[in-house]
Design a protein around this nucleic acid. Structure first.
Ligand SMILES: O=c1ccn([C@H]2C[C@H](O)[C@@H](COP(=O)(O)OP(=O)(O)OP(=O)(O)O)O2)c(=O)[nH]1
Ligand SMILES: [Mg+2]
Length: 738
DNA sequence: GTTCGGGGTAT
DNA sequence: ATACCC
DNA sequence: GAAC
């Protein structure tokens, strides 16, 4: 049932997508013609529809799991849905009112949307990967948009958030009105000499105002009212020709100026060049060739948190005096970097010193991963029923429980694997919340020690509702999930996943590229417009896709440590991320850099002025992917490194941490992501706020959860103390793998 | 019907 | 403001 | 997709 329906929708989506690209590219493309492309072409022929929108979806995939890694086989995801929804949405489009925000963008990005737009089922699929954290990429983002009509509609319903409603609260904060763009870049005024007339011709909507200003920055002129010399009529809000014509006194769109939709302008911005206006994606709905519109949207989003039940009230485990804490912290540094993994690091250091050989003993998986170790149960407080009240308050927080990644024996393993695949599938679909729900269900299942076989049994587990319960029953009874198989069988999503696997490429960008006709990494490298990070991402696609053996992480850390100590003998570091959680392999190398009693400025200066230049000179650091250029702000260096003699680049993240914020930074950088979200949500429910700098109290939130007050710092230096204040039993890093 | 973490950088 | 990332 |  569902599947059939889904399939239909999915097929429609792709059909439209391909049609779009066939229209779009008229150009000669290319040389490549992969089988996929050919297939697509064949498909397209039949009809053409198109619309301005494209389907775009939203979000991203799973995370880091990058596609390649396990093979992405699956999934098509893309879009989906929503056709119907979209269509109808159009209705409301009032011509006159400039809606607030909505913009008509074209295909690509429009801010809109958010959350719930989507409809119910969609189709994409994803692959799987199961790692626990893969879902991160989705966070919040908005994605595409499509027709603004839809968006508009939705938005209005959105209430307070004006604007986009991204799930990110913070984004809402900035209201944009005040921001002014920096003056024009240099010779980048590619729009110089052009005179634009917008429809609707006003700057009431923030998005439109923003674009108008941006166009001006790039050299264009804006005609407040109709006049001679207008070179382009830019139609926003996804208005169609008929609607747009009402904006003119004569009720007709003047001939002469080129008529395009906002997508054209957006693309000009992104390409920094005046694009050809003839593409279908730039045409206004209803104008000649185009007819129909489809749209889609989606969302995207990101990670969820987890939650569970358990109640626990608080108690903190040990208490530590300040000194103890400091000592502890210092010790930790050593421990983590040295003691804890002493062997590893020592070996690594030795190796590095001697030659950089890698052998070593990569062993140690000791920690958490190995299958035997996790004792089950344990738990701290009594899990169940506590007093109703305590239970209620803490219900559902994964951070309250031990999550060691489930060591081997879970009877629900099969179910878990399938559900994780579904989570991945949805992440590619752009539905961050659905992804979060699946992940939470998985976390809940991992704690179960009995096999959940029927829907009834499943429903008793917190985090599993009706729909997941049915799916679980299906998995247990027939051993598979029809929906997942459908998704995985569809090869079309592979390209999307391939593209999203590129570092710094998310759902909106991957979708756009597909719509533009790109089908392989070579296409992208040669023809797409890539930013610097994306170019590096493609050049090192394989490198960044691979997981890094734990022993190698230690070797990279040893090199950093050596340079750090050479610069300042008192500086310290701790390897965080999945390494600290005991993983046998890591997606990247995460290191916290700090020094007793030192502030951020001191650490930053040490790193930016001495250590990093030195490591770069050595040839260890290869490129900086994201670093602050401002010297007075910024707390991290994100780039790539490679061991001497190795050609494989690894992503390296260095976090500069003030001594006073070490505990909060450790929590943040140790993760995993869902654990952090769970802990932070828990804090916010207690009127507190937890971030990488510390735990704050008395945070006042206005409507919409928007923070009004920063709050009063409760603790930042001591990791255990933060747990204690939050009333969460301390969990060692190995148990933070929800 | 609302909420689902909080923040950084690059463009 | 958006996109992508931690 | 689930909880409230
Ligand atoms: O969306 C995210 C991603 C990461 N983090 C934190 C937790 C995480 O542990 C740390 C380092 O990020 P990274 O991406 O390196 O994750 P990881 O947990 O180290 O996993 P991996 O093995 O993929 O590196 O940053 C978040 O808070 N939110
Ligand atoms: Mg990591």
């Amino acid at each position: 049932m569902v599947s059939t329906q889904e399939k239909i929708e999915k097929d429609k989506f792709f059909r439209d997508l391909y049609l779009l690209d066939s229209l779009d590219d008229d150009s000669p493309e290319s040389e490549v013609e992969t089988p996929i492309r050919l297939a697509a072409k064949a498909k397209r022929q039949p009809d053409q529809t198109l619309d301005a929108v494209q389907h775009e979806r939203a979000k991203q995939i799973t995370t880091r799991g990058k596609v390649g890694e396990r093979r992405p086989e699956t999934v098509p995801s893309t879009v989906s849905a929503v056709d119907h929804t979209l269509k109808k949405a159009k209705v409301p489009l009032p011509v006159d009112a400039p809606k607030k925000k909505a913009l008509p963008e074209k295909r690509k990005r429009a801010p809109s949307t958010d959350r719930e737009l989507r409809r119910r089922d969609s189709e994409p699929a994803l692959t799987a990967k199961s790692a626990p954290s893969r879902a991160r990429r989705l966070k919040t983002s908005p994605s595409i948009v499509v027709d603004s009509a839809v968006q508009t509609t939705k938005r209005s319903s959105e209430k307070r958030k004006h604007v986009t409603d991204l799930s990110n609260i913070k984004q809402r904060k900035h209201q944009l009105g005040s921001k002014k763009l920096p003056p024009v870049p240099i010779g980048e005024q590619m729009l110089k000499g052009l005179l634009f007339y917008f429809v609707p011709n006003n700057d009431i909507c923030q998005a439109r105002r923003f674009r108008i200003h941006k166009a001006i920055q790039y050299g264009a002129a804006w005609a407040n009212e109709w006049c001679n010399g207008i070179t382009h009529i830019i139609v926003c809000d996804n208005l169609d020709v008929h609607e747009a014509s009402k904006e003119f006194a004569c009720k007709e769109i003047p001939r002469g100026p080129t008529l395009v939709n906002v997508n054209w302008l957006i693309e000009c911005f992104s390409r920094r060049a005046v694009c050809d206006t003839h593409w279908n994606r730039f045409q206004v709905s209803g104008s000649e060739a185009l007819k129909e519109t489809n749209k889609e949207q989606q969302q995207h989003q990101s990670k969820p948190l987890i939650e569970h039940e358990d109640s626990i009230d608080k108690h903190a485990v040990d208490e530590e005096t300040p000194e103890g804490l400091e000592a502890n912290a210092a010790e930790c540094a050593l421990l983590d970097a040295e003691t804890e993994s002493e062997d590893e690091l020592d070996n690594a250091i030795r190796d590095v010193r001697s030659l950089g050989s890698l052998s070593i003993d990569p062993s140690f998986d000791d920690g958490a991963k190995s299958p035997g170790d996790e004792p089950p149960v344990d738990q701290e407080p009594a899990p169940f029923h506590g007093d109703g009240k305590a239970r209620k308050e803490n219900a559902g927080f994964m951070c309250m429980e031990k999550h060691d990644g489930g060591k081997g024996d879970n009877p629900n393993e099969q179910t878990i694997v399938k559900l994780l695949k579904m989570a991945d599938y949805y992440s590619a679909t752009g539905d961050q919340w659905r992804t979060r729900a699946y992940r939470q269900a998985v976390a809940a299942l991992r704690k179960e020690r009995r096999l959940i076989r029927t829907k009834q049994e499943a429903l008793t587990v917190r985090g599993i509702g009706d729909r997941l319960a049915e799916k679980i029953q299906e998995i247990v009874s027939i051993g598979k999930l029809q929906r997942l198989d459908n998704a995985e069988a569809d090869p079309r999503d592979k390209i999307l996943r391939l593209f999203m696997g590129i570092y710094h490429v998310g759902f909106p960008t991957a979708s756009r590229w597909i719509a533009e006709g790109h089908r392989t990494l070579e296409d992208l490298y040669q023809k797409a417009d890539l930013n610097r990070n994306q170019r590096i991402g493609i050049e090192h696609y394989e490198d960044f896709q691979q997981r890094i053996p734990r022993a190698e992480v230690a070797q990279h850390a040893a090199i950093v440590k050596k340079a750090l100590r050479a610069a300042d003998t008192e500086a310290q570091m701790i390897i965080g991320g999945s390494y600290r959680r005991g993983s046998a392999d890591c997606g990247d190398i995460d290191i916290l850099i700090f020094k007793k009693d030192a502030g951020l400025d001191q650490i930053r200066a040490l790193m930016m002025e001495t250590v990093i230049p030195e490591l770069t000179a050595q040839g260890f650091l290869k490129v900086a992917l994201a670093t602050t250029h401002h010297q007075d702000s910024g707390s991290k260096w994100h780039g790539a490194s490679a061991l001497p003699g190795s050609k494989t680049w690894r992503r390296l993240d260095l976090l500069f941490v003030p001594w006073a914020e070490l505990g909060a930074a450790l929590i943040y950088f140790t993760g995993n992501d869902y654990f952090n979200r769970s802990l932070r949500l828990h804090a916010s429910r207690k009127q507190m706020r937890l971030n990488q700098h510390g735990l704050y109290a008395d945070v006042m939130r206005g409507q919409g959860r928007e923070r009004i007050t920063q709050g009063r710092l409760l603790e930042g230096h001591d990791e255990k103390r933060i747990f204690e204040i939050l009333g969460v039993t301390y969990r060692p890093p190995e148990h933070r793998n929800p």
